[in-house]
Structures are given as structure tokens and as C-alpha cells.
Nucleic acid binder design. Structure first.
Lengths: 329, 329
DNA sequence: GTGAAAGCGCTAACAA
DNA sequence: TTGTTAGCGCTTTCAC
């Protein structure tokens, strides 16, 4: 029995095989538990069935610790696995690993990448330029890349979520609403403040700048922010936090200062991580379908890789967020 | 200029090259930004500079959401990256993906694996048997594999941590100490109850079985456990929880029932995830150097792969845990 | 110091 | 239906 027959059997190859031969091959395969060499196949087919997951971060560590990214990763890796692809994770420190990244792409180690974007299109050019130059199929998540690269993207509407959250607070009668924001290097943090501002504006409320604190996703600063807000002459009656971890800390800090939530102060978060369900009282927050985001990104990428007719034109999906009312507002 | 020269230049190859030739090659490489094809090198060298991260789980989803695993992953991936290796993540559902796993290993897609073990040595045999049969270098984390496989491992001492936590509570004068345990399919959960029991025993306290609840890592059951403990005639004055998330929920539930922590009831957790520092009051807990665990696992694996003299004999490291006193006990 | 050529394991076009 | 063979991109031995 010759190599070609084995190949035909294995791949339902371009030629058909006799039942007898197939049997023998199958038996031999089972006996030796033979498995084709991935590198050899990769070399032959020019594809590796591996997808690179480029996880942008500002700090050089800590990507995996975030429950937010964990949710996305779960969807991403799970879906890739279900469709027979492997996931290669690479924590990409912004402004650093670009040369290594180029090596990854040019060496054809991955068939495609999904890249987590944190900033505005023009700031992500250096990164996307490299990806585009290598021609590796790419889907952006969280933030879209610049139009001209033509990469698909799966994002969600930060501004809308923040707007909805604040509009909800306004509808409850709140007029002084504080904001504990995230790290403004993240477009997501900026979009959330913007949504907050827009909601106030549309209700003819002039935003009191002493009530908005954006510094980092850092719990310590969130604590300090609360302390300062309630030091002032007219403290807020509600706080919109840029994410759930921040909201959690805000609730803790309010309690420490003797304020009850939601009786004295209402709090709304963003993301809907597990903590928001488990904390007491459970957090009212803006839910992002993060798992789904991962799943869709995987789907989109595989569509363009296998250029399914549907995927011929790379799509940009904007997942909708939803205010989930629990007990803090 | 011939292919061999390029190779020599690129790899500081087995032959030396003239300065002139080297220059020309280097220039050409830069101009075309040439990068060697990973599959071809993989085929040639029989190695891919990729490490498989086999993340065992019982449920088919949710590995990445756990802050515990996130910390390990951070250390693992970070260290691999620093040493020039890629990380392939594979969520391995216990009792399922064994055939796919065998394919991964036999296809020589990875140079080695670090495998997260959840159970006792004899229960992990099917998995390790496959890895051993394929001869792929392997390091176990969290739990060691059976001796005979000869795989290195990086673990930590659950029993000791639990013992220390409970001994500490006893030293504070507590006599009725409850335990809210984890999912007993996890050896880690069993070891933690065992440590709890041993501490009580050594202090001549008969464990009151109405005070130990092991069901799952599930917050809901933890809540129910607390409720039941404090329904009884003589409720505990302290609770040792099998991990920090559980401890957090326990504190919340105690507060809901009108008990103050630590004045009325003391609580100690396990793991030392970020939440335990951020919650209020900050959690007294047993710290596991999880990041370090990942780093060491990577180091050990690379040692055996590159068979450094030091790594010739695969080592088993047991990282030491440490009670960190904060405010809940 | 450099070029030619074989071979890593696989697939598919070409012959038989 | 099957066997033979070239070639994917790289490295390295061998001959020059």
C-alpha cells in the first residue's frame, strides 16, 4: 500500500479508493495510532488551522486576570475548538511586540488573527498596518480598525450603554449623578464618559465636573473618587461606574461612609461580570454579551478564511448592550 | 547568493560566511522583510517552539473566567513569551477531548505541554497515559501525576494552607468553625477539607458535620450553607471557605443575616485573588503564588525540552502557601 | 567560503 | 484503482 492511497483515504482525497485498501489503511492507522504531522501538512497546505489571539494591553501583565477578557476568551476559544481550530494566545503589549508579531504573521504560523483593539482607529494603525501588510485574515474585537484595512469587527456600543444607564438614573429622578471612569487611554472608557455626558446634556443638566473622576480601572482611585465626591457640598445621589469592578468598590466605599445603596445613593455598573450577580445588593449594570462577542469574532474570522460567500465582504457587527436592573439602582 | 548561505547567516549556521555575503543577505532580508516559514522549520527541526496549555475542566465552559486560572495563565504565557515560545491553549473537558488531544500531541504541533490536573493521580491516568505514550514532554500543575510517568510538577500545599487557616482561627479562640467547601470532584477541595479536619482533630475538637458543607464552588450553595449553619442551635463563630469567591459570598450572606465580620463571625478564604484585597473588609486568606506557579511550570518544561542538565531529572516543586492576615479574621 | 542536493512528512498530479 | 514522483520551505552534509 502506497503513500498516496493513505492520503486519499485520510482526506477522502481527490481519488477514490477500493474498499479493501481503505480497510487496510484504516487498520494500520489504528494500530500504529498514526497521526499526520502538523508541520508537514502546514507546509503542504500553507495553513495550520491555528488562530492567533492578539490580546492588546497597556501594562505588560494581567490580561488574563480580567473577568472581562476571560468571558471573551471563553467564547473565542470555545468556538474555535468547536470548529476544529487551535488557539494561540499572544499578549501584545501596546507599542512593544510589533516585531515579534510580524514574525508570527509572516512565518505563517497562524491562519488568521483576532485582535483586541483598545484605542481609536488612528492609534491602532501601526498594528493593523503590519497585519494588513502580511495579508493575514483578521477580525478586530472591542474596537473596529480603520475602514481602509477592510477587517471585519465585532464590537458593542459603549456610548449607548452608558447613555442608557444614565438615562435610567435620570428617569428615577436623580439629578446629581457622578461618574467613576476608567483609564482614558482606553477608548471604551472615553466612550462611556461620553455617553454619560450626552445623557445629562439631553436632559439639560450641566455636568458638574467635580463629579467625574477618570483615572484608571484602579479600585484605589475609585475609592478616592467616592470620598472626594461626598466631601463636597452637594454630593451626588447616584453614581455611574465605568465597569463592574469599579462599581463594586464604589458600593463598598459608600457603605463604609455610611450611605445605603440604593436608598441613599444608586449605583450602576458596566459589563455584567459574575461579581455583579454575586455582590450584595446585586448590581444594576449594563450587560455586554462578551461570550457572544468571542463566538461571533471566531465565526467571522473563519468565514473570511474559508471565504464563505457570506464572509466575502468582511462584516462589522455591533452587539447590543442591555441595562439589567438588579438592586443597586 | 544561494539558499545555504542564507541559512548560515540566519542561524549563525554550521558554516561561517564572508562578511560581504552576510551583508547582502541581511539587506535582502530587511528589504523583503523575509521571515522563515514556521511549518517548514517545524518539519525540518521537528519542533515548533509552541507549548500546549491543557486546561482541564469538568464543565465544558468557563475556564477562562476564573481569576484563579487567570493568574496561573498570566505567569505561564508571560514566561513562555519571554523565553521565545508560543502558547496554545486547549480547554480539556475531563472525559471528553482525549482523542483530539492525542491528535495534537502525535501531530507534533507542540513541543511540550503543561497540563492542569484536578484529580488524584489514579484518576488522571487516562490523560497522562496518552501524553506519556506520545512522548511529549510534560509538566503537571496544581496536582502531580502518578510517579511512574516521571513528569515534573508544580503544585502547592492545599492541606497545609487549610490547616494553617484553621489553626489560626483556633489560636484566636474559636471553637466552632464551619467550612464552606468546594466541588469535591476537585482534589484541591478535598485536600482543603482534610486540612480543616486535621487542624480541628489536633486540637481535640470533634468536627461537627452540620458545620461542613461541600457542594460546589457555587456561590448559591455557599449562601445556603451559611443560612443553614446559622439556623442551627449552635452556629459557628468562624468560617473557613475553600476559596476567596466563596468566602466573599459567605461574608455577604453573614452581613445579610445581621452578623458583623469579624466581630461576630470570622472568615478566612483561600487563593488570594484580587477580590480579597478589594472587598470590605479585606479578606484574611491563604495566599497561593499562582502567577509564580505558572512561571515555574514554564521554566521546568523548557528545562526538560532543552534538556538542561538541571532539568534532566524532572523536578516536583511544591510552592508554599502563606496565610495573609487582613480584616476578616 | 559557497553551491548542489537530499530529505524532513505530506499531498496531488501524472502514469500506469 | 494504485504506484511514482515532484515539491511545499527549510537546513545541512557533501563536494567543490
Amino acid at each position: 500500500v502506497s503513500p498516496s492511497v493513505v492520503s486519499y483515504v485520510l482526506n477522502g482525497g481527490p481519488r477514490s479508493t477500493s474498499v479493501a485498501a481503505r480497510e487496510r489503511v484504516l487498520n494500520a492507522i489504528r494500530e500504529l495510532d498514526y497521526h499526520p504531522n502538523a508541520s508537514a501538512r502546514g507546509l503542504r497546505f500553507q495553513q495550520t488551522r491555528t488562530i492567533g489571539l492578539l490580546l492588546s494591553t497597556f501594562e505588560s501583565s494581567g490580561v488574563f486576570e480580567s473577568p472581562y477578557i476571560g468571558l471573551i476568551l471563553g467564547g473565542l476559544v470555545g468556538q474555535l475548538k468547536a470548529r476544529g481550530y487551535w488557539a494561540l494566545v499572544y499578549p501584545l503589549v501596546i507599542g512593544q511586540d510589533l516585531d515579534v508579531l510580524e514574525g508570527l504573521l509572516r512565518s505563517k504560523k497562524v491562519d488568521g488573527v483576532v485582535v483586541r483593539l483598545l484605542q481609536e482607529p488612528h492609534q491602532t494603525h501601526p498594528l493593523l498596518e503590519i497585519i494588513a501588510a502580511t495579508g493575514v485574515p483578521c477580525v478586530c474585537i472591542e474596537q473596529p480598525g480603520a475602514e481602509r484595512f477592510g477587517f471585519g469587527s465585532v464590537t458593542y456600543d459603549d456610548g449607548r450603554g452608558a447613555y442608557d444607564a444614565v438615562a435610567y438614573l435620570l428617569a428615577q429622578g436623580h439629578r446629581r449623578i457622578g461618574h467613576v471612569g476608567g483609564d482614558l487611554r482606553y477608548l471604551t472608557a472615553r466612550a462611556r464618559v461620553a455617553g454619560y455626558r450626552r445623557a445629562l446634556l439631553e436632559n439639560d443638566i450641566v455636568a458638574d465636573e467635580s463629579l467625574v473622576y477618570c483615572d484608571a480601572w484602579n479600585p484605589g482611585t475609585a475609592r478616592a473618587a467616592v470620598a472626594r465626591m461626598f466631601d463636597g457640598a452637594s454630593p451626588p445621589t447616584a453614581i455611574f461606574a465605568a465597569n463592574d469592578s469599579l462599581a463594586f468598590v464604589v458600593v463598598e466605599e459608600l457603605r463604609k461612609h455610611g450611605y445605603r445603596v440604593p436608598e441613599d445613593v444608586s449605583v450602576v455598573g458596566f459589563d455584567d461580570i459574575e461579581l455583579s450577580r454575586e455582590m450584595d445588593p446585586p448590581l444594576t449594570t449594563v450587560r455586554i454579551p462578551l461570550h457572544q462577542l468571542g463566538v461571533r469574532a471566531a465565526d467571522l474570522l473563519l468565514e473570511v478564511i474559508n471565504d464563505d460567500p457570506a464572509g466575502a465582504v468582511p462584516r462589522s457587527e455591533v452587539l447590543s448592550v442591555e441595562l439589567v436592573r438588579r438592586s443597586t439602582a
